[in-house]
Write a protein that binds this DNA or RNA. Structure first.
Lengths: 254, 254
DNA sequence: AAAATTTGTCTATTGATATAGACAATTATA
DNA sequence: TATAATTGTCTATATCAATAGACAAATTTT
C-alpha cells in the first residue's frame, strides 16, 4: 500500500542499467514524499515483481542507495528510508541563498571554492555588457545546508568594478554582503533560464553525488535597481535534494 | 576548435553506459549552442581520444543521436548537426502556452490526449481547495511546436464547476479559451514548483524521446484574480528540446 | 518454539556493453 | 591521380549487467 505510488516502468536496452532506473524511481518517490522518513520500502521480492526484474537487480539498486546514504537495510527486518524530503529553493526577482531556505534547515552557508581572473567569453561579455575579452572575476562556490551540498555555482563579475569581491566572498560567505562593499545595497534578478542535465564529473565530486545524478541548471543575470548588470551566474542544483519554487510573491517585482 | 566546449568527463561503472553519457554530452553541447546547425562534429577518432574510449563506443553514441534525428552521418565527409537549439519557454505569473512561444516557432497547439473524471487525491484536493475524494476532471495534453512534442501535461479541475471543460479543450485546443466559457477571462499562476527526473515510459512514448531522456517537471496552481484555485497541473518538458525562462517581466504581477 | 518473512551471500549462465584490430567505401585534399 | 581523412562493417575478446536458483542469517509473527 505504501508503495502504491512507486512508478513501475523501466526501459531495457536504453544505455541506462535497470538497477539505476529503479534506484532513480525510488529516489524520486522519496523526494516527492511518498515515503516518510524511517518508512519501510517494500520487500525486495515485491519490488522485483513490480518492475518485472530479478531480485538481484533490485538489490543492486538498493545497494547504490544505501551507499548513497538514502536507505538503510537491516537483515531480517527490511529496508528503511533515511533521507528527508527535498529542500524547496525559492526563485524569483529577489532570490537570495540564505533567506530562501529559512525554516527548512537549521544551518546554511556558501563556501568559496576558487576564484580566478580571466578574459570574458562571448556569453559572459554579453550578459555583463562588457567587451569580449575584458577581465572578469570568476567565483566557484558551493552552497551547503545542514552539511549537505545543495548548490554549485559559477559566477562572473566585472573585474574592474568589483576588484576584491573574491576576498569579500571568502570572508562573508554571502553575495549580498559582498556587494554591499561596492555600494550595492539592493539588486534584482533580471532573468533566469532553467534547464536540466546529467551532472558532469566535477559536479559529481563537488556535490557528493553518484554518477547518473541529474542537476537542475539556472543561468541568471543580476542587475542593480536601475538595470545595470552586476553578475552573471550558472548554478547547478542536485535534483534529488532540491526543487525550485516560484511563488507569486517571489515573482512580484518590488 | 569547434568542439573545444564539449565536456570530456564520463564515469565508468555508473549504471549509465558510456555511449549514453557521450550522447548526452553531445546533445547538451548542441542544446547550448556550441554547435551551429549543419556544423560538423569532430571525427569519431578525435571524440574517442577526448573521452578516452574506443571509437566503437563513440559510434554507438552517434548512432543513437542519428536514430533520434539529431545528427546526420555521411561516409567520407563527417557527422553533422541537424537539430536546432532548444525552445525557450517563458514561465511566470502569466504563463500561457501559445503566446509564450511566439517568434520561436511558426506553429504550435495543444492536443487533448484523454480526459476522465476521478476522485481527487490528497494532493489535488489540497491544491484546489476541495474535499478529498470530490470529483475532479483530469485532462492529459501534449503541447506541440512545429510538429515536435514540447510538453506533456496532466491538469485537474473541479468537476462541478468546470463540467464540460474537456469538450471545450478538445474543441479550442487552449486552456485560456476554454476557461472563458466558464466566465474566467483572466487567471494567474499562483505557484510553480520545479524539478527534474528521467522520463518514464509513458512520457518517452508521448514525447517521442529516447530512453534515458530527462524531463523538467513543473507543478503549478492557477488561480482567479481574487485567489480562488482553478487548476492544478503537472507538466513535463523534454530537457533536450525546451528550457524554461523566467524573465523580469514575466515575473511581475499584473 | 516453530514458522514465516526478509535481507545477505554464493555459484552459474546469458546478454549487453566496451575494447581491439583490420579493412572496405566514400569524400576531400595535395 | 594519388593520398589522406572519415565513416561503415566485420570478427574476436573481455567486462559489466541481469537472470536463476539455493541456502544462510536475522528478525518478526504465530
Amino acid at each position: 500500500m505504501i508503495a502504491q505510488q512507486l512508478a513501475s516502468s523501466i526501459e531495457r536496452r536504453s544505455g541506462v542499467s535497470l538497477w539505476r532506473q529503479i534506484a532513480d524511481q525510488i529516489l524520486h518517490a522519496i523526494a516527492i514524499g511518498d515515503f516518510a522518513e524511517n518508512a519501510a520500502l517494500p520487500p525486495e521480492m515485491a519490488l522485483a515483481e513490480r518492475y518485472g526484474v530479478n531480485r538481484h537487480t533490485v538489490r543492486s539498486a538498493i545497494a547504490a542507495l544505501v551507499q548513497d546514504g538514502v536507505l538503510r537495510a537491516e537483515q531480517g527486518r527490511g529496508t528503511f528510508v533515511l533521507s528527508r524530503k527535498r529542500l524547496s529553493y525559492p526563485i524569483g526577482a529577489r532570490t537570495r541563498f540564505s533567506t530562501g531556505l529559512q525554516g527548512q534547515t537549521s544551518e546554511r552557508h556558501i563556501l568559496l571554492l576558487a576564484s580566478t581572473v580571466e578574459p570574458a567569453s562571448r556569453r559572459v561579455a554579453e550578459a555583463l555588457g562588457l567587451a569580449r575579452g575584458a577581465d572578469v572575476i570568476r567565483l566557484e562556490t558551493r552552497g551547503e545546508a545542514d552539511g549537505r551540498p545543495v548548490s554549485r555555482a559559477t559566477a562572473w563579475f566585472d573585474a574592474q568594478r568589483f576588484a576584491g569581491i573574491d576576498a569579500a566572498m571568502a570572508e562573508t560567505g554571502s553575495v549580498t554582503a559582498s556587494l554591499k562593499r561596492f555600494a550595492i545595497n539592493d539588486y534584482l534578478r533580471q532573468s533566469t533560464v532553467l534547464s536540466a542535465r546529467h551532472a558532469d564529473a566535477a559536479d559529481l565530486a563537488d556535490l557528493d553525488l553518484q554518477p547518473g545524478a541529474i542537476v537542475l541548471v539556472t543561468v541568471a543575470v543580476n542587475v542593480t535597481l536601475d538595470g545595470q548588470p552586476i553578475q552573471f551566474s550558472e548554478s547547478r542544483f542536485p535534483a534529488e535534494r532540491v526543487e525550485l519554487r516560484l511563488s507569486a510573491n517571489d515573482q512580484a517585482m518590488p
